[in-house]
Amino acid sequence: MKALTLDNIARSFGGLPAVDGVSLQAPPGRITGLIGPNGAGKTTVVNLITGLLKVGGGRILVGDDDMTEADAPTLARAGVARTFQNIRLIGDATVLDNVVAGFHRHEKAGTLANMLGLPSAHHERREFERKAHALLDRFGMTALARHPAGSLSYGHQRRIEMMRALAMEPSVLLLDEPVAGMNDAEAYSLADIFRDVARQGVAILLIEHNMRFVMSLCEHIYVLAFGRLIAEGTPDEVAGNPRVIEAYLGS
């Protein structure tokens, strides 16, 4: 049970601030929303949290650990998982293999055991596949386990990404526009899964463009515009905030 805390983080590109002093908290067990119009800096925030970009200032905490200087693999191993706004799967690999890849941070069998094909490596692989099948079951995709991920529909690919992130058994889960391009029925069936995951004590940060979806799902919402936080609060408070309305309508 770890919270994600951003303390006044900043980052600029070629002198132009993309994220400017953003502080927020995503406590465990809660779905926290981060919304904002296009170009507000939402994906930059995700890339800063996951260590793909270096922070220009401020601090990033996962639980009580200072992760400001950590690189991407270190953060992933510390339990920060993410999905990508533009789906990034290994298209030629099967659905199962894509999901199993998520378990990487839990691997215990050593390099040598894997190279020599020792039983410990075999057992581990079977264990991961069993868990991956459980995830496939939960997302209703068992029948597609052996299909190449790239051959499936957009909605299915989004689910595979989600399963891969969940396979990491994360403490912090960043969802970067997870329902973009889905219809309402698909989106709301995923919402149930998100609630379920949060209930197990995962801190979820949901980055979305779709206001309606965020409002229905999140307990607490931060609003980003031009790299700065302009509002925060419950969905009702945010929806009634004139600055938020201006930011969305003005853009």
């Binding site: 260590g51 998982a81 993410r82 290994i90």
Partner: peptide
């Protein structure tokens, strides 16, 4: 295939 994905998975 995708280094960004790899590092995001802790590889």
């Amino acid at each position: 295939e995708d280094e960004t994905v790899a590092v995001s998975l802790g590889i």
